[in-house]
Design a protein around this nucleic acid. Structure first.
Length: 99
DNA sequence: TTTCTGACACTAG
DNA sequence: CCTAGTGCCAGAA
């Protein structure tokens, strides 16, 4: 395995940790940010090692989230000052592009 | 090896 | 606004 640079998992985790409070990133945004196009990979990584990163700051491109997380997701984001619109996040307001 | 499933995205109706 | 179908990558049986 070697080595050639950080693994996709490491890059994803690092990107998620880099997201500031009050902001969110979509799965595909993170995927593209690390050089991948499979948003599913990001979700899979967070499901496996997301326990060490603010996974709640990662939502779908449309601002919604998975049902088993919807409750925790919205609750945490709302507590951080993220604009919530009913059951979805106001991406136009909380979306973070890495800058 | 094949098949299924999953913290997703996109297009069409 | 909603549902259905298809593509993507990776791991488990």
């Amino acid at each position: 395995m070697a080595g050639a640079g950080p693994s996709l998992t490491e890059q994803v985790l690092a990107s998620v940790e880099r997201i500031p409070p009050g902001k969110v990133m979509s799965y595909s945004d993170v995927a593209e940010y690390v050089g991948s196009r499979a948003a599913r990979n990001v979700g899979r990584i967070l499901a496996t090692e997301g326990g060490s990163v603010p996974w709640h700051r990662v939502v779908r491109q449309d601002g919604s989230c998975a049902e088993h997380l919807r409750d925790e997701q919205l609750a945490r984001l709302r507590a951080e000052g993220v604009a919530i619109r009913g059951q979805r996040v106001d991406m136009a307001r909380a979306r973070w592009n890495g800058r």
